[in-house]
């Protein structure tokens, strides 16, 4: 029995580490190439080529960028609060990466007679975990901006904090109908609940609100006020350089994928899809969401600050509340 337990234990951990490695590798590689795809697509939208010098079609550009950022000098401003300044990029990157832990990327599979769930960890309050981490992510931007001790960074940080706090409400409220439909906080259960119909069709209003506020949450255009480069230099990461800046960058693109994953899980039926295996479907859905976000970036201008706040507080939150009421009513009758 002891042997069995040990074996179970070792295999359990081995599988876990394998899953972690696969997810991490997928996320980082995707993040790197997402940058390239974004730059290429933006280029094409603006009728130019985008990066095409490093490798064929610029395919080695992510590596060139990584090498560049790794070899750049890591500058810490004299007046900065050193410890917080050094930590905040890590906060952004880590919270982004952690969020992926609860996203299921396929149905349970059986390896050597063992059932292995294709999710890093299925906790029954996965949704709350997501919210918790996304709130923590605010600290990265806000503290990074504050600790730089630069006016632009500070303004960026403050904007980031205000924006994220505002949109978190709408984000949370928009998902309550989903939870009501699925009857669970577990992401695995939510995916399972969409076996027949993706929630996007059941809850189009919730989908729209979630999409919009999630974009605001990850500071994408048109909600990139915290780093508005034509007003604030580079916003909260103005003073960062080298790989520390790279971490912010990485965080942003991992966030994009997490968002894609969440949208897939909550509204697009997660890994479910015909013909292809589950992880492939999830990856396709993530890529699709990311492409849409790039398209949005190539099309829409940045919101003004008052417009941002109006949209959050006066449109999205009331709409989300009403949606909760309507969904409740629909489910009851």
């Amino acid at each position: 029995m002891i042997d069995m337990d040990l074996q179970t234990w070792i295999i359990g951990y081995g599988v876990l580490i394998l899953k972690l490695g696969a997810v991490l590798l997928f996320l980082l590689l995707m993040a790197a190439y997402l940058v390239l795809v974004e730059r290429k697509l933006l280029g094409r939208i603006q009728v130019r080529y985008g990066p095409n010098r490093a490798g064929k079609y610029g395919l080695l550009q992510p590596f060139a960028d990584t090498i560049k950022m790794m070899t750049k000098e890591d500058i810490v401003p004299d007046a900065a609060d050193r410890i917080i300044f050094l930590l905040s990029p890590a906060v952004v990157a880590i919270t982004a990466l952690l969020m992926f832990a609860v996203i299921p990327f396929g149905p349970d599979i059986t390896v050597y007679g063992r059932r292995v769930p294709l999710v890093v960890t299925d906790i029954n309050v996965g949704l709350l975990f997501i919210f918790a981490l996304s709130s923590l992510g605010v600290y990265g931007a806000a503290l990074g901006g504050w600790s730089s001790n630069s006016k632009y960074s500070l303004l960026g940080g403050i904007r980031g904090a205000a924006q994220m706090v505002s949109y978190e409400l709408a984000l949370g409220l928009s998902l309550i109908p989903v939870v009501m439909e699925a009857g669970s906080f577990s992401l695995v259960e939510i995916v399972n609940a969409q076996a027949e119909l993706p929630f996007m069709l059941l809850e189009p209003v919730a989908f729209a609100i979630f999409f919009i506020s999630a974009m605001a949450e990850i500071k994408r255009i048109p909600f990139d006020l915290p780093e508005a480069e034509n007003e604030l230099g580079a916003g909260f990461h103005t003073e960062y350089s080298g790989m520390r800046f790279g971490l912010f960058f990485l965080g942003e693109y991992v966030h994009m994928q997490v968002l894609g994953g969440l949208i897939a899980v909550f509204f697009l039926g997660g890994w479910r899809g015909p013909l292809l295996p589950g992880p492939v479907w999830l990856a396709l859905k993530i890529v699709l969401v990311c492409l849409v976000m790039i398209w949005i970036r190539g099309t829409l201008p940045r919101l003004r600050y008052d417009q941002l706040m109006n949209l959050g507080w006066k449109v999205l939150i009331p709409a989300a509340l009403l949606n909760v009421v309507f969904t409740g009513a629909r489910l009851l009758w």
Partner: peptide, 21 residues
């Protein structure tokens, strides 16, 4: 108006770039 914007960028996506390399 928003849809028109998205349509325009989508259309540009498939145009030949004017860049002279």
């Amino acid at each position: 108006a928003i849809a028109a914007g998205f349509a325009l960028t989508l259309k540009h996506l498939f145009r030949k770039p004017i860049t002279e390399e």
